[in-house]
Design a protein around this nucleic acid. Sequence first.
DNA 1: TACATAATGTAATAATATAACATTACATTA
DNA 2: TAATGTAATGTTATATTATTACATTATGTA
Lengths: 160, 160
Amino acid sequence: MKKLVDEKALQQPHDHQLCMTQTLLSAEKICMDQGARLTAIRRRILELVCSSHKAIGAYELLDLFREEDTKAKPVTIYRALDFLIDVGLVHKIESLNAFIGCLQAEKKHQSVILICDDCKNAYELDAAPVYQSVFEMGKKIQFTPRSLTIELHGLCASCA
Amino acid sequence: MKKLVDEKALQQPHDHQLCMTQTLLSAEKICMDQGARLTAIRRRILELVCSSHKAIGAYELLDLFREEDTKAKPVTIYRALDFLIDVGLVHKIESLNAFIGCLQAEKKHQSVILICDDCKNAYELDAAPVYQSVFEMGKKIQFTPRSLTIELHGLCASCA
DNA sequence: TACATAATGTAATAATATAACATTACATTA
DNA sequence: TAATGTAATGTTATATTATTACATTATGTA
Ligand SMILES: [Zn+2]
Ligand SMILES: [Zn+2]
Ligand SMILES: [Zn+2]
Ligand SMILES: [Zn+2]
């Protein structure tokens, strides 16, 4: 059960500017590699999503984005999010209808998301073995897997 | 990886009336045991949710329910669903904003839901070992688990 | 330049879910 | 059985999340 990043560190005060910088660099690289365009809007939405490790909703993002672009509309945000999700820079948390930035977007990975119901911080852990065992279960009923969502709600160390 | 029910059978034509009958009996028993009231509305919503193995949305339920009670409102449905979810007779599929009936509500169980993106049939498998391994992951970062969602999208045997 | 494609602008609306408060039904027990 | 408290439902309104449709603009390529 290899960890993607040091999640314990994320729960502590840390140099979050570094998280941001690295994510933006990843974004550049990923888009370059895929021939995708990291436009100003998309970059800005990514920055906003990644501005903390808390899950953030589309309309919260809209409010923030509007501080700079007063005429932005919901679809502006959803389009950017769709793009960022497609290229793997953002994950949607289905059980919250909210979004988090991915800290390991450059690597192919399968994640379990741990969501603190108190502070809303979301920690993404690598879950290849878990994924494997769910896929195996599927096989037994001839189910062809496409995408897996694993979300654990609870309380983080700080909030317990 | 014990199976809750014979999911292969669910994918085949089967005596679905039996599914319904058993679910309703479970509902009676569960409510009796918990001192909860299975009112006419709740029972009817449960029947509608369980009328197939396909995930169904709240507003689809509302449309169906309105065929008998023309003045029903969304909140009527959501209240009934909240109740049915609380007592374990219905599960919400977070990634679809839709609902399915539970075929094993009397047993305490932890489930993985396999959702066919084509026919929308949803199969609930028992997943205690998977749950255990996710909980273990959480422990490593002192995360106190509360509830776990595991949803696998793909294609069922019939639709692949 | 001309063209094709991708991205964005803009307006409207769809789809999902909850809040607030009034009323009715039900169970308990005085 | 009447009084009381609680649970369930009725009713209206509104909040929240997300998409459709079509026009316009930007970007890359022939
Ligand atoms: Zn950080
Ligand atoms: Zn990720
Ligand atoms: Zn059936
Ligand atoms: Zn179940």
